[in-house]
């Protein structure tokens, strides 16, 4: 494990998780500082997505602990974990995280709405973020009616609208071509830096990982911490 300091925001240690007989995580660990962008790399099937899911409290690890801001995720009730996902976490996946029935602006407003914010207020804020990501003109359309790159920008807007502490991004450019991928990454990283959010970025592309501050390699369910070379 890397050394801890006051900047430490999210720590997962000794994480193990199996799906059936196949272990996906076998003692992985990761530490994320405030405002830091960490790339999680590794070949497919190495368990990097599972690591992200464990860190985000989406999947409960079989053993090991995940601590966010000093709180143990495993010890929390589902309600609080959900609240955390709503407020403190943001998610950008390869695709599919948007609710197809809702329009783009409603999708972006969703986390706030789930948190009990009034519709008008939530959608106004959502539009603000969509403007920052240059997709405010798509507000009334449904995710099925916009291009992949636009959908990812909407997803980023949704991930950031609550000004979360951590954004979990799982292959956010996976379904995009290089050009759209570049733009999405630049917007994601810029917005995260602006709001001071940390980013856990799962990718197998070095070009995408190059947007990070440092990288962690997952192989066979174990992490290899790579020293930050200054």
């Amino acid at each position: 494990m890397a050394e801890r300091d006051d900047d430490t925001l999210l720590v997962g240690s000794e994480l193990r998780k199996s799906f059936g007989p196949t272990p996906a995580l076998d003692g992985a660990g990761l530490m994320v500082r405030r405002g830091e962008i960490v790339a999680v790399m590794g070949p497919s099937g190495s368990g990097k997505s599972t690591l992200l899911h464990c860190l985000a409290g989406i999947v409960a690890p079989d053993s090991g602990t995940v601590t966010f801001d000093g709180q143990d995720l495993a010890a929390m009730r589902d309600r609080d974990r959900s609240a955390l996902r709503r407020g403190a976490f943001g998610f950008v996946f390869q695709f599919g995280q948007l609710v197809p029935e809702l329009s783009c602006v409603e999708n972006v407003a969703l986390p706030m709405r789930l948190g009990g914010t009034r519709r008008k207020q939530a959608e106004a804020k959502a539009l603000e973020w969509m403007a920052r990501l240059e997709v405010d003109h798509l507000g009334g359309k449904r995710p099925g009616e916009v291009s992949g790159g636009q959908a990812q920008r909407v997803a980023i807007a949704r991930a950031l609208v609550t000004e979360p502490k951590v954004v979990f991004a799982d292959e956010p450019t996976g379904a995009l071509d290089s050009f759209n991928g570049e733009q999405v990454m630049r917007l994601l990283v810029d917005s995260a830096r602006e709001t001071g959010a940390s980013v856990v970025l799962v990718t197998h592309e070095a070009r995408v990982a190059a947007y990070s501050d440092r990288e962690v390699v997952v192989r066979d369910g174990r992490t290899r911490q790579v020293e930050l070379v200054s």
Binding site: M41, A206, R207, A209, A210, E215, V217, V226, V229
Partner: peptide, 8 residues
Amino acid sequence: RTAHLKSM
């Protein structure tokens, strides 16, 4: 990779 990523 470390070296490459650094320059990347």
